[in-house]
Design a protein around this nucleic acid. Structure first.
Lengths: 335, 335
DNA sequence: CGCGCGTCTGCTCATGTGAGCAGAGTGCGC
DNA sequence: GCGCACTCTGCTCACATGAGCAGACGCGCG
């Protein structure tokens, strides 16, 4: 027998076997009878078909997860955990899915944090909304960065923290301060205030942190809230800022983009996140790939909740799961 | 427990179970331990997930077939057999796949025909090329419709039949006549010729027929070959012609579009195809849906080899394999 | 020509899995 | 409040399946 012919014939047999097994629900024995091979050979053909990626099994569900990517992420970046959800085409939907996933993660996370430090923003608010009432018992919540909005939608920052706490039957402690102060002295003064200082101290002692990150562009909540102007953002971008983590703008190499601005930013520092046992980053969508990369590659989070595209971008995988396996199969043929 | 909540919780569990089972290759027992349910429940969750279409299994291979569609086609149109291949995006590729499938079918078809009647055309030529040498032993081949080309590519009709016969180590008998004669008298005269008459008689006795069909437009081989002009085609279309079967133009209701023209067309009649035990139609591609429908719905073929889009078009299914299974599942639920 | 190597084949056996069944729990109507 | 019907649960058992193994086969090398 010429090997090439045998291989081709086997591949065809494998395809037929796969069809009968997976589409017609026949037993390997029956398939053997049809294809005139022993049932053991059928088993081997099916194993081959699976290996070569001829059989593709996909779990189609909004709540599905991409366990393979999760494993890759934890391995590559030394994370404690990762949650990757399939990405719907619609970006609004995607944010919702990622937030839901974060809520799910929070609910099932053990040990239950006694005190949870949270940031604020659109994503965090969605996470809060996605949490079921009674998601845990008596988890107290503390804000980890300043959140008094200067302009529209006052109180979203506060309501996020409060909602998370309420739904767990716990108390929320707010950080009664703007995110960014205009003058360094003001920031120092506020920090020195007993209440604010106390909250910051409490925040440092949280057993887990939950936060998202923003992009360094004019769509940022900081611009919306009036803390920064478009010009400020432009300057930050010039200095290499890719986005903000709990109010602090960082560059692609995970360092503070503008130390002067950062000094005026009130809240937990990056080191506290880096050293925390559990710091959960919730982030999704194409625009945030750069920030996500900066955060994840520099150890600022220990748990990542994201969508599959972001995950693939972080891993440098091609964003194509179809051709990939197919080409792999033919490569193996050639070898 | 509120039913709605239970159902949702179960669905989520089912998704998790499916992930662990199909993506992580865990045993149902292990999954039970992880999800804190008995292994029997895991089994049931997986069964549910399969029913509801949460788990989608696809066989990704150029030589794959769509057995479900094949079954539907044979049932709906009372066919003896059907072969449906997945449709690649590329139309050239699609024709190649369908032809290959036809060749495969011919090779494995039992009983082996002693004498095979074939038509000619682009598709049939591809089928001939796709046949492996020695695909059968001593199958003789006879042309079933006139095939002397008037213009370019002389002999393709002949070479198709000869190639099929040669590769099986058999003899080819050609029909030495044009497909369509200009005058009825000429046609009758040629038909009366001993050679031609003999070949036609032989063709009527073939144990199986293999043919394709053409579309009623100017891309037709009949125009290419000079038998018909663009004007002729236009007139045929006006009379409701959708395409030709072994040279005879038919309408959507399976009748001859132009009896006068048909009388001048030399070769087997439609009735011979209809009454044959085995008449294999090889047809694929969007433009041919109408002809295919005319042929299949009016019993002119007993075996259909086609692509999945054509199959779905014939069945009136939406060309969407996602929702389909989901709805079927819920139907079963409801019953 | 004979030997050894690697691959493929058919098998035994342990394990994984689905059908079917009895009992518990749950909601609904009387 | 009581029973009835229904679903859901945990189980037994038979069956389907994959791991592992010894022998057969084909192939190339000396």
């Amino acid at each position: 027998m010429v090997p090439a012919e045998t291989a081709a014939a086997n591949e065809l047999l494998a395809v037929r076997a796969a069809e009968l097994y997976y589409e017609e629900n026949k037993t390997q024995d029956e398939i053997g009878a049809i294809l005139r091979v022993t049932r053991w050979k059928v088993g081997r053909l099916l194993a081959q078909a699976r290996e070569r990626g001829i059989i593709r099994i996909e779990i189609v569900h909004p709540r599905a997860r991409r366990l393979a990517l999760e494993r890759d992420l934890t391995a590559r970046f030394g994370l404690k955990d990762a949650v990757v959800v399939p990405a719907p085409a619609d970006d609004v939907e995607l944010q919702a899915r990622v937030s839901e996933a974060a809520a799910d993660y929070l609910v099932s996370h053990r040990p239950v944090p006694r005190l949870l430090g949270v940031s604020w923003g659109r994503t965090l608010h969605q996470v809060a909304e996605a949490l079921p009432s009674g998601w845990s018992t008596a988890v107290n919540v503390v804000q980890i960065n300043g959140g008094v909005s200067l302009s529209k939608r006052p109180g979203t920052a506060a309501s996020t923290a409060v909602m998370i706490a309420q739904k767990a039957g716990g108390q929320a402690t707010l950080l009664p301060s703007p995110a960014i102060l205009e003058r360094l002295e003001t920031k120092k003064a506020i920090e020195g205030d007993r209440t604010v200082g106390g909250v910051l101290g409490m925040a440092r002692g949280a057993s887990a942190y939950l936060y998202s990150a923003g992009v360094a562009d004019t769509s940022s909540v900081h611009v919306d809230s009036g803390y920064l102007t478009a010009a400020d953002i432009a300057r930050l971008v010039e200095r290499g800022a890719v986005g903000d983590v709990i109010g602090r703008y960082i560059t692609a190499d995970g360092t503070i983009a503008d130390p002067e601005l950062d000094a005026r930013t009130l809240g937990l520092g990056l080191e506290e996140l880096r050293n925390a046992k559990t710091s959960i980053l919730v982030i999704g969508g194409e625009p945030k790939h750069a920030v996500a990369r900066a955060i994840v590659t520099h150890g600022l989070c220990s748990v990542l909740v994201t969508d599959e595209h972001t995950a693939r971008a972080l891993l440098g995988h091609p964003d194509d799961h179809d051709l990939e396996s197919a080409t792999t199969a033919s490569r193996e043929d050639a070898s």
